[in-house]
Design a binder for these strands. Structure first.
Length: 491
RNA sequence: GGUUCCUUGGCCGAGUGGCUAGGCGGCGGUCUGCAAAACCGUAUACGGCGGUUCGAAUCCGCCAGGAACCUCCA
């Protein structure tokens, strides 16, 4: 099969043919969440997109080790709150909880949200707090190489020194001169040689709760270190793909490259992939901007902006309907369009199971397959793949209505393809509620009413028939009459 | 201010130097007791101004508007 995957590499700013370091195996690292609050829609995008990548790589036959970290220490607060304490401990004080209690709480919700979105768990989900020793060792070796210095109990990366031999800024297309003129001088950073130096180890202030002993001070690791450490530990000093949001390219990923290169003379990843942002009213959705909607709010509809609740699969489909390197703009209208489209797709998947076969086909299943895979091979172009999938929907419905014919062999191929595409690769799933006792009673009741309606129809008692249909409709039960009976579904 | 990028039909969103993206919505038709669903058909487009070209929405320039990053951020 000509499945040549091409991906856009931020490092080269070009699409490149993907060739793993070791044939048949892929090492994938994606920056995971900082678990200090509920995940919002903006967070869902990278995890859904990289889930698609993970699934597609596996479909292509690669054995993938997918590492996605949990940041449960560190990430410094901004200067506004004077102390440089980390986000997690700040939140903990507010809520009067142990830091690790906060971490656990939001990690649990994160996992729950990911399950709802049908995002597969990664192969390894390492936590920063579990790799303090490795981070200390990493700092030691950067110090030994002379690319870091200690100041007042903290350790900083010496960007200027590093840039003398390597290029700091190669990922985000900057050079040091440019960074120098544009880096703000922040308060409380006098101990740094240069404003653009970043912390490898930060001495904890007295109020800081999360802290670990080290030879320099009681403190905590710098924001960028954990990813360097954990990716190297589980994937090696050089691995295949590193992913994350575009907003992480600078400085986070740039610093990761610097740290790895300072230690080993080579950068951590060969391909860097960055997903674009979800916007709302044209502006990036971000916690700091206060314009975010959490996933739980989306699923329940409990947010002033939301006209209704949107199911996890609607969100997933919405995200996949845009290319990962484009922004997607959130709106109720857009979500509802996705919801309807998804319903149409899933209905066709059901219809597929009861299609009549003919001796010969008038449809071209192979061409459809090729177009879909060609789209995915071209930098994971899920919107094109989905557009083609709707060609498949049309094909299915046309066979159903008799406008087209399909042979038994082609039908088998089509079934296999649609299932692979929809469930395995795009990661969509049926969202019908499980067959609980309550549901059995409900469906029995609806069947009963609709059988009564059938009687009424037989007697040409249209008033009664319509009354039943209209009132069930008002309650959210959609009714479709068929030649020999009826079908219904819950809206 | 610096770096990078975007501007497509009512909405969301692909894409290519000449050939229908797709979804949702609209309109007309088929089917139906009427609907719904489905099917068939159909309309609405490439921010503005120049340039290159036989031909540009797609390449170049300028202008306008917007965004991301430069600071925690998916």
């Amino acid at each position: 099969m000509e499945n040549q995957l091409i991906i856009y590499n931020t490092l080269s700013r070009e699409k490149e043919v993907f060739k793993p370091l070791v044939e048949g195996k892929v090492g994938l690292y994606v920056c995971g969440p900082t678990v200090y609050s509920n995940s919002h829609l903006g967070h869902a995008r990278p995890f859904i997109f990289f889930d698609l990548l993970y699934r597609y790589l596996m479909f292509l036959g690669y054995k993938v080790r997918y590492v996605r970290n949990i940041t449960d220490v560190g990430h410094l607060e901004n200067e506004a709150d004077e102390s440089g304490e980390d986000k997690i401990s700040k939140k903990a004080r507010v809520e009067q909880l142990e830091p690790m209690e906060v971490v656990q709480k939001y990690m649990n919700t994160f996992h729950q949200n990911m399950t709802q979105l049908n995002v597969l768990p990664p192969s390894i989900e390492p936590r920063a707090s579990g790799h303090i020793i490795e981070q200390l060792e990493f700092i030691d070796s950067i110090l030994e190489k002379g690319y870091a210095y200690e100041a007042n109990g903290s350790v900083y990366f010496d960007v200027e020194k590093y840039n003398g031999e390597y290029h700091y800024g190669k990922l985000s297309g900057r050079d040091l001169e440019n960074i120098k003129t544009n880096t703000r001088r922040l308060e409380g950073q006098e101990e740094k040689k240069n404003a653009f130096d970043f912390a490898l180890w930060k001495k904890a202030s007295p109020s800081h709760i999360m802290r670990w002993p080290s030879k320099w001070s009681n403190g905590f690791p710098g924001w960028h270190l954990e990813c360097s450490v954990m990716s190297a530990k589980y994937l090696g000093d050089v691995f295949d793909i590193h992913g994350g949001g575009m907003d992480l390219a600078f400085p986070h990923h740039e610093c990761e490259i610097a740290q790895a290169t300072a230690k080993k003379g080579k950068g951590p990843a060969r391909y860097w992939m960055h997903n674009n942002m979800i916007t709302i009213n044209g502006q990036k959705m971000a916690r700091s901007l206060g314009n975010f909607i959490t996933l739980d709010e989306l699923f329940t509809g409990e947010h002033a902006i939301l006209e209704k609740a949107y199911s996890p699969m609607t969100i997933r489909f919405f995200v996949l309907q845009a290319h990962y390197r484009s922004t997607i703009d959130f709106s109720n209208e857009a979500l509802q369009a996705s919801e309807k489209g998804l319903e149409r797709l899933m209905t066709a998947v059901e219809t597929l199971e009861k299609l009549p076969v003919a001796s010969e086909s008038t449809v071209d299943v192979s061409a459809l397959k090729e177009k879909c895979f060609a789209a995915l091979n071209d930098d994971l172009n899920s919107p094109i793949a989905i557009a083609n999938l709707f060609e498949g929907v049309k094909m299915i419905n046309s066979v159903k209505t008799g406008h087209e014919k399909i042979s038994a062999k082609d039908l088998e191929e089509l079934k296999g393809f649609i299932h692979t595409m929809v469930f395995d690769i795009l990661g969509l799933k049926e969202e019908q509620p499980a067959d609980s006792e309550e549901n059995k009673i409900l469906s029995g009741t609806i069947d009963l009413l609709l059988n009564v309606r059938m009687e009424a129809k037989k007697n040409k008692d249209w008033a009664t028939a319509d009354k039943i249909r209209d009132e069930l409709n008002a309650l959210g039960v959609e009714i479709k009459d068929t030649k020999d009976g009826f079908e219904w579904s819950l809206r």
